[in-house]
Design a protein around this nucleic acid. Sequence first.
RNA 1: GGACAGGUGGCGGAGCGGUUGAACGCGCCGGUCUCGAAAACCGGUAUACCCUUCGGGGUAUCGUGGGUUCGAAUCCCACCCUGUCCGCCA
Length: 477
Amino acid sequence: MIDLKQLRDDPQRFIDGARAKKIEVDIHHLLRIDEERRTLLADQERKRAEQKKLSKEIGPAIGKLKGQLKSASDEEKDRLEAKIHELESRPIALKAEIHAFEQKIAQIEPEWKDLWLQIPQPPDEDVPKGDSADDNIELRTWQPDWFDPQKSFAENKGFPHRTHLELIRTLNLVDFERAVKMAGTRHYVLTGDGMRLHQAVLRFAFDFITQEHGFTPMSVPVIVREECMVGTGFFPAGRDQAYHIEESRRGTGTDLFLTGTGEVGLMGLHQDEILDPEQLPLQYATVSTCFRREAGAAGKDTAGLYRIHQFDKVEQVVICRADEEESRRWHQKMIDIVEQLLQKLELPYRLLQCCTADLGLKNADMIDIECWMPGRGEEDAEGRPTGAYGETHSASRLYDYQCRRLNMRYRDQDGRNVFCHSLNNTVLASPRILIPLLELYQNEDGSVTVPPPLLPYMNGVERIGSVAAPASAAPGR
RNA sequence: GGACAGGUGGCGGAGCGGUUGAACGCGCCGGUCUCGAAAACCGGUAUACCCUUCGGGGUAUCGUGGGUUCGAAUCCCACCCUGUCCGCCA
């Protein structure tokens, strides 16, 4: 969430920010409620101070009188009791007044908090303005020597390509029918070498980020409490996107939510903590199953492994000091790590600078990486897709927006507690990454060569679908 | 799932319903002593928010939320969490 003091000092900055992000939120209304709340709070506190002062006078006096009462004669008793009663009745009017203020504050507070949580972080000055994802700007592309993005797959490789759906079917790598039987649309079952390849690429990515780049390997919960979802900035705005486990309806326990990214678990780790600045920056990586309802995406990317309810992702986060330069450096570093990874896998990709409209609530800046997928995009004269870039990675820079929500701080040199900065980026998400992997490593005979970096993780399988490779154990086929 | 026990400051640990933000100990910071250190001694040592004439003033916080009361760390209720034993279990 944003700093309310900053909002009061310069509301225009946040109004412009929300407008640039195309996010509807009534900032003027929040300012009005905030003002009202503070006035009420001040009035209430004044009354309470009065009450407290009175209490401190009355308390010992009553105590003393009650002591005397015990050993008093009957006529003395009446007199003492009257005196006690008189003392007790003095703050009674204050009590009602304080209660009235309390009620009023409790009435406006939920709306105040809710609005506050919905104010987006203004985009950075150097983020290009735009109206939708179409206005994102291509920063650069990379491709291996054999690949010329100007040419078709057939021109590059010498034979026409099959889409990942076709490859999956002929090579028995995925069983969609049974997955849908069990869990409904947008589910899949990886079979045989499909599962092997999925595990191999995840393990390769996890080893790469933890061994070669020193990120601390972690396992984190994928079932979390609401505070964790709010703290990481996914709630309340993204509530519809998360699967909800209503434990409270059973009469015990609290509700839980399935996380849509390992970021939630990694960032939630240090919620409400004051970190040792000597330990910063924290660099964490996890591989976790991600769950997404894909609400509002009905009819979009319905076929294949592109948009699914459950997948696995290697995620990297950095928690660093509140320093813009350092944040920016880490952002570049995390993108660089992904570029190295994709280059090892020899997957053509492009970097996209997301425009203001595509940033979402919490980001100040976001760079997407898209891999080339021959089976996507517009169709040619023969009805074959001509290929397109498809999103596989997203690197976010958030300043203290997320850590403020999480109440994650460190003590700076002057002894002040400061909110940390946070960043996150995909290292690799599968099975989506299998789409370019399968499509680009396919051979003319319909087999798929295992990318060399994945060989150590493939138990000897070098080529999927060739006679030389061990039979891919597709059950029930 | 059953039966107990318990949640207090960075940590340990007190706390008759009344100047208790909270004794005491440890830790930490500063000082005295010392050639220096240790010990000893002295002093200091929470966070958040609000107001401010920038000197300071105020409120809240003893797991969380309600309630009782003139007044709650202390009494009542609900929830959350932790520990121990039993049962079950990948």
